[in-house]
Amino acid sequence: MNENRLTNILVPVFAVILGIIAGAIVMLVSGYDPIAGYSALLYGAFGDRYYIGETIRQVTPYILAGLAVAFAFRTGLFNIGVEGQLIVGWLAAVWVGVSFELPKVIHLPLAIVAAALAGALWGFIPGFLKARFRVHEVIVTIMMNYIALYVSNAVIRSVLSDQGFKSEKIHPSASLRSEFLQSLTDYSTLHYGIIISLIAAVVMWFLLEKTTTGYELRAVGFNQHASHYAGMNVNRNIILAMVISGAFAGIAGAMEGLGTFENVSVKAGFTGVGFDGIAVALLGGNNAFGIILAAILFGALKVGALEMPSAADVPTELVDIVIALIIFFVASSYLIRLVLTRFKKEGK
C-alpha cells in the first residue's frame, strides 16, 4: 500500500522531468539554447515581484479548472466541458457585475454565485443526459463547449454591448481587484481570486473525503454497479458530480471576469484554461493538494513562457509542447510504472 502511494507520487514527478527534458531536446534540435530558454522561463515566472504576481494570477483559474475536471473524474466522469462552463461562468459574472449597483458584500458574492450557477447549469445538461439516456459525457461536453462559445459571443454582442466586441467594465463593487495586492506585486494583475480558489480546493477535499455525499460520489466513480447494489442512487450522483464540477468551472470563469479582465469580450476561440485544467487535474492526481501544486507548475510555465521570446528568442509555444508531453507521459503512466517496478526488482 505504502509502496503504491510512493509510485503515485513518483509518476507525476517523472512525467514532469521527462516533459522538461523533452522540451530541452526540442530546443536543442531547433537550434535554441535550452539553458537560456529555461532560465528566461524561470525568471519570467518568479524573477521579481511583478512576475510572481502574474504567476499567482494565472494559477488562480488553473486551480479551479483543475478542481472541476478532477471532481468529475473522481465520480468516473470525464468533463472536457470545463472550457464551456468557464465561458458561461465568465459571462454570468460580468453580466451581474455590469447590471447591478450594490454594496460590495452583496454584489461580489452575487456575481460569483451567478457564475457558479451558470457553470452548474452547463454541467447539469451533460450530467442529466448521461444519467437519463446513457449519452457519453465526453461528446456532449465537447458540443456544449462550442454552444457556450457562440452563445456567449452572441450575448456579448447583442445584450452586453451595442454590437461591440466587449462588455463595459464591471462596477468596482463586483471587482476582485485589490490595490493592496497590486502594490505588493509591482502593479501586476494579481487579485483576491487566489484566496477563493484555495478555499475551493479545501471545499473539494472536505466534500469528497469527509462527507457521506463525497463517499457516494467516489463509490460511484469506483464501481457503479456495486454502488447501485449498496442502495446508492447512481444517476443522482452522476448529475450531482457534473453540477458541482460545472460550478467550480463557472467560478474559474468568474476569476477571469471579475479579477483579471473585469469585462468579457467576444472570443474567436477558446480560452484554453478549461483544457489546461485537464492537464492540471491529471498531473495533480485528481487530489486537491496535488492540483494546487500542478496549477502552480502550469501557471509558472505559461507566464514564464512570455519572457522566452525576448530573453532567449525561443517561441512561447515551447511551453505548450512541454505541457502536452507531460500529459502524454502521465497518461502513459503504465510505462513509468513498468520501469519503476523493474528498477525496484533489480534493486532487491
Partner: peptide, 23 residues
C-alpha cells in the same frame, strides 16, 4: 501503453498545435 484514450487524444491536440506553431 494502455493509456486512457481520451487523455492521450487530448495530449495529441495540445502537442499538434504547440509543435506546429513553434515551427
Amino acid at each position: 501503453l494502455r493509456a486512457d484514450q481520451v487523455v492521450s487524444g487530448v495530449a495529441i491536440n495540445f502537442l499538434a498545435l504547440g509543435l506546429s506553431l513553434f515551427l
